[in-house]
Design a protein around this nucleic acid. Sequence first.
DNA 1: AAGCCGTGGTG
DNA 2: TCACCAAGGCT
Length: 352
Amino acid sequence: MKDRPSPFRNALRSSLLAWYDAQARDLAWRVGPADRRSGVRSDPYRVWLSEVMLQQTTVPHATPYFLSFTERWPTVLDLAAVDDGDLMGAWAGLGYYARARNLLACARAVAADHGGVFPDTEEGLRALPGVGAYTAAAVAAIAFDREANVVDGNVERVMARLFAVETPVPEAKPELKALAGSLVTADRPGDWAQALMDLGATVCRPKSPLCDVCPISAWCEGRKTGAPETYPRKTKKADRPRRHGVAYVLTRGNDVALVRRPPKGLLGGMLGLPTSDWRSSPFTDIEAVAAAPVLANWGEVGTIEHVFTHFSLTLQVFRAEGEGDFVWTARERLGALPSVFLKAALAAERLL
DNA sequence: AAGCCGTGGTG
DNA sequence: TCACCAAGGCT
């Protein structure tokens, strides 16, 4: 289909691009269609940084991080020079912390191997740490105006509806990607990618799509079925197990005892509260005290709930005053902790 | 290659 | 309440 430009494709493309010209969201990292027409170029560093932050993350959540990162580190060379701990602390709360480790590795690779300049091809970008098929295509299209097939969850949903694809995801992913590819041309590839994603985010939404205002509804097979919201079809996912653990809030005056977590795995490389192992059953008081990092007059101050991608966690929070070999950190700096530990620390503070 | 890896908003 | 889900990548 890609080699057979059809009237259908051209009309659909024109309609969506016109919609984007009028309705594009104003995003902190975006060079809008009007500015682009007057010659403003995207900064590949900002495009890359925003794309990594947006992986599995909402625009409202990522935006303040993007603003603070670009203020602190205006160029990829600035970022490449950051200490690991500072970077991880700045990323705290955004989640998927492997992204932060790869972000730094990528910045250092660009600095060391590419003279501080991002590769301008999909293939070159794809070779960088933390840059997969989606991000390589997105940066190639948005920053370098390359003809790349940019496929994220939004685009998959739009394609599943537009073509009424009955195959459930994730099985349908290759098919959805091929369908998306059939609509890509050398004309405004960056705007096309962003138009498709804006449409998915604001009109062709997961629930209650706004077909009445959709610029491509005339061509939408899903709408003809009368139930466009039922696409994409999905296979059921397994329910998540629950785990139990103990978090220890050990204080010394205004300081709280933290530990640096192992570099890989859950919350890898982040500072955290000392904890017990996490297991399927709750801890008794005796067990909790026995698993504590130091001897102290431990007392339970409450429990918190937290949901990770593949399990739910109930954390019993114990508190004591004490000493020991820890990363002692002032209360005011607990913003550098992953949310699960911030939640536990605040619970200990509140419930005293 | 299927499982691992966060978080917060939403209906 | 809780399942779903958001500009996915790595192993």
